[in-house]
Amino acid sequence: MKGWRLPLAMLLVFAAVPLLPLGRDSGYVMLLGARIMVFATAAVSLDLILGAGGLVSFGHAAPLLLGAYAVAALDKAGVDGALPVLALALALAGIYALLTGAVALRTRGVNFIMITLAFAQMVYFATGSIPDYGGTDGYPLGERTRLFGLKVLHDGLPFYLSALVVLVASYLVCRALLATPFGRSLVALRQNEQRARAMGIDPLRVRLGAMVVASLIASLAGVLLANESDFISPAYGAWQRSAELMVMVLLGGAGSLSGAVLGAGVVVLLEEGLGRFTQHWPLIFGPVLVLAALGLRGGLAGMWARRG
């Protein structure tokens, strides 16, 4: 059971939310829960490269944005089938990760952080300059994506369950991947690159592979996000969104995957919850982040591991 308690506990919470007798609030709570799961999916994928692989990407909102624009592009063309939407989203995100990763992985440290940011900015500006999709104003979604005609991403329970399925699947894929020789190699490269190379592990191929997987998963979150808000805007890919994804991973505890889910929950709930009390919520959220960085080694997942 080692290492399964926290994720199972979180799964129980997510699965229980639709069953809670919340009456009129239940719609709002489910919306919030779905939002958490969408961002958690992106955060988990970022944790794969950032936490496990030590690749501090500051541009993880870019594949998310590409996923969202795949929805917009096909909606404009009158297509709302999940299969073509997913195919386009995954293709865009995969190609993006291959191209940018090949350049970014030539650099180290601060430069890697900054070049991933620069590539994400390119996507941000590119999407904002396509008049067909509303330019910087964004694109109102006509029809939500359907799976074989089924309204799986429509309001309420269907969307909630779809988000849950995507999150669980993404988590399991990342977790399983880390247990394979490929995953071991990725982690080995973070721990001691020189040693890993001397063993015969190819840093570029392993890291590029991980970046592609992370990008693919993030694009799924983008498809969900576009459907959740019925609106696609370059703002999903602004650098602040990339930073927010990093904050989720770091707050939850980098490298533990389930920590990223926890972090996404805390960030969304804090923003949303504090936002209900005061419009000046960043005055509380900001210092919380500073204090967390100063005091919370290993993130929330680290606290969980040290409990009792």
């Binding site: 247990a179 394979t180 995953g183 592979g209």
Partner: peptide, 15 residues
């Protein structure tokens, strides 16, 4: 695993 060219393998549990 690395020597045998299996370190890139994205399937099967390493352990």
């Amino acid at each position: 695993q690395a020597r045998e060219g299996r370190a890139m393998r994205p399937w099967g549990r390493a352990a």
